[in-house]
Design a protein around this nucleic acid. Structure first.
Length: 573
RNA sequence: GGCCCCAUCGUCUAGUCAGGUCCAGGACACCAGGUUUUCAUCCUGGUAACGCGGGUUCGAAUCCCGCUGGGGUCACCA
């Protein structure tokens, strides 16, 4: 039996979950599930890397948990999380995470003793040493190196201090960092995606493993935790490739096994730039600049904050403020974080499917001989493998994602669609729910579904039912085309039909459709001559869902009132 | 700039490891038709790629070298 596979996703809680991170998490999850399905055992660990005290926040880590759970990427070991959501039929009660193997806690800030224990061992063995230079001193040396156009490396001047003295200063509590003595030999990473990558010793200096504030650096924490948590496979973005030799050196110094590594290509914007959280601020800044906005257009942003933000390319606004501001200047922010896609009305399954294909390929055919592209997370759990990960960098193609999303929506049956649409609106468009109610949402489902690429699109389709009977404008062109053009037959038909409304019983979509058809043949006109005038009358425009549904949702009284209002309008025109 | 990674239609990719079945297949987008009372859905067809230059070989998208291009990384961030 093959060895059990333990993977982990280890985000730092400095903001929402980025789609790149989501893909990494998905693959890590899938690899563990796959191993489990193969009978060799698999666990997926979620660990929060909050060793940067200044940038980490509880809100961010809660958001990441939420985003992962929404995507259906559920962890075995890690922070406990309730998947139940109030008011959502689609999320049954349940708690995931926990520490069944006893290798927690899963927040690094709670593991300081563990790190210090290992750092002490390293110092004891002379594999690491305290260094007492101040950040300013180091900065000066770094600048010197840059001016001389040579690569900067730490010069090991701390080692000039006799060992006894170093240890004495350490014991006394002098401000210091701890550095690892890097071995003077090349290190090879056996990467499952890229093959062997060897980096020479000149590329590394004695990097810091514990900061002045007593917190470990990422390098130390990640190596200690992965080893203590039994992680066997590390999947991460290619930006970490160059860190891996450092981690291997650390593992050797600590006597740990080296896990299997797989570094995957990064995800880019269509213009080739790296897909970054800052893109949202960038878009908003540009819109403000183009519109000549020089004071904050919303109350939630202070004048000073706005000014600073506009001036500094790297400065970011809190996401809710940014959204408000974007709405005020009328710009649509690009979706970057998982939360953005959720808000925009994407289905988690479609996002996962698309993300999985961005860098991985199942290399399977469908029944009709085409490349298999549509699959769910359960498929990944059964078929995901490291071999299918590509090497090339990928651009994030929104059009294709959109297509995946509308296909995924199309595969829902009407009842399922009504449920996810309602759940989505409950969170992001409460007015829709309050005005329509669950009944009309269900009534609309079949008509709205094929007209939606995202759940947010639904609003446009049902807009006519959201307004009062006198709360919409008639499109003059549409009225003319449907009713007044030529012999004004449309207008006549509409008048006649208005008088026949009471005879339709029951008032539901099939009966209404049948009645309209009967009306057309009785009066010897094509469907277009009667359906279009009615459509324009009750919605104001020539485009709407099928007539039966449109009228059924509005209700008989509304239809009557709207037709009468339209008749009055047409006579004036 | 040093080091490292990558390179097939506009985009995501299959094919590359084990060279011929590939004048390169699929998907999205785009274009043209068709179905439909509107819109959308849906159906059919089409345009479109092996970055460049050298090798190796009877034969290269596939192997080798160089070039070009893209990317990553050089923090007391992760």
């Amino acid at each position: 039996m093959p060895d059990p596979v333990v993977t982990r996703f280890a985000p730092s809680p400095t903001g929402h979950l980025h789609v790149g991170g989501a893909r990494t998490a998905l693959f890590c999850w899938a690899l563990a599930r796959r191993a489990e399905n193969d009978g060799s055992g698999g666990r997926f660990v979620l660990r929060i890397e909050d060793t940067d005290q200044a940038r980490s926040s509880d809100a961010a880590s809660a958001g990441i948990l939420e985003d992962l759970a929404w995507l259906g990427i559920l962890w075995d070991d890690g922070p406990e999380f309730s998947t139940h959501q109030e008011g959502r039929a689609s999320s049954p009660p349940g708690v995931i995470g926990g520490d069944s193997r006893g290798v927690g806690p899963y927040y690094q800030a709670q593991r300081l003793d563990l790190y210090n224990e290992h750092i002490a061992k390293l110092i004891e063995a002379d594999a690491a040493y305290p260094a007492f230079e101040s950040p300013d001193e180091l900065e000066a040396k770094r600048k010197e190196a840059i001016d001389a156009k040579v690569g900067y490396r730490y010069d090991r001047s701390a080692l000039d201090i006799p060992r006894d003295e170093r240890m004495a200063r350490l014991a006394k509590g002098d401000d210091h960092v701890v550095r690892l003595k890097m071995p003077d030999e090349p290190i090879t990473v056996h990467d499952q995606v890229l093959g062997d990558v060897t980096v020479g010793p000149d590329e590394f200096d004695d990097f810091i493993i514990r900061k002045r504030d007593g917190f470990p650096t990422y390098h130390l924490a990640v190596v200690v935790d992965d080893a203590l948590m039994g992680v066997t496979h590390v999947l991460r973005g290619q930006e970490h490739l160059i860190n891996t030799p450092r981690h291997i050196a650390l593992q050797r110094a600590l006597g740990f096994d080296t896990p299997t590594y797989a570094h995957m290509p990064l995800i880019f914007n269509p213009d080739g730039s790296k897909m970054s959280k800052r893109d949202k601020d960038k878009a908003a800044k540009k819109a403000c600049k183009d519109a000549g906005v020089d004071a904050p257009p919303v109350a939630s942003v202070s004048g000073e904050a706005f000014k600073k933000w506009m001036k500094d390319k790297t400065r970011q606004l809190p996401s809710d403020q940014l959204r408000e501001l974007a709405a005020a200047v009328g710009v649509t922010l690009p979706e970057i974080d998982v939360e953005d896609f959720r808000r925009a009305g994407y289905l988690p399954g479609a996002l996962c499917n698309f993300l999985a294909l961005l860098g991985w390929n199942p290399k399977q055919k469908t029944a009709d001989g085409k490349d298999l592209e549509t699959f769910d997370n359960a498929f990944l759990a059964e078929h995901f493998d490291l071999k299918g990960i590509g090497k090339g960098q990928a651009k994030f193609d929104r059009a294709k994602l959109l297509s995946f999303n509308s296909d995924a929506i199309g595969r829902l049956d009407d009842a399922e669609f009504a449920r996810v649409w309602r759940d989505w609106a409950g969170a992001y468009d409460p007015e829709l729910v309050s005005k329509l109610g669950d009944d009309k949402i269900a009534l609309f489902a079949g008509a709205v579904k094929p007209r939606c690429k995202t759940l947010a699109d639904g609003r446009g389709v049902v807009q006519f039912a959201l307004v009062d009977d006198d709360g919409y404008e008639f499109d003059g062109k549409a009225v003319h085309k449907a009713m007044l053009k030529g012999d004004a037959k449309g207008l006549e038909m509409l008048q006649t039909f208005a008088g026949a409304l009471d005879a339709i019983d029951p008032w539901d979509a099939p009966t209404i459709d049948a009645a309209v058809e009967a009306f057309a043949s009785e009066h010897e006109v094509g469907m277009g001559k009667i359906a279009q005038p009615i459509r324009v009358a009750v919605t104001g425009a020539g485009v709407s869902p099928p007539l039966g549904v449109t009228l059924a949702v509005l209700g008989r009284e509304s239809v009557q009132a709207r037709i009468e209002r339209c008749l009055a309008f047409a006579e004036q025109a």
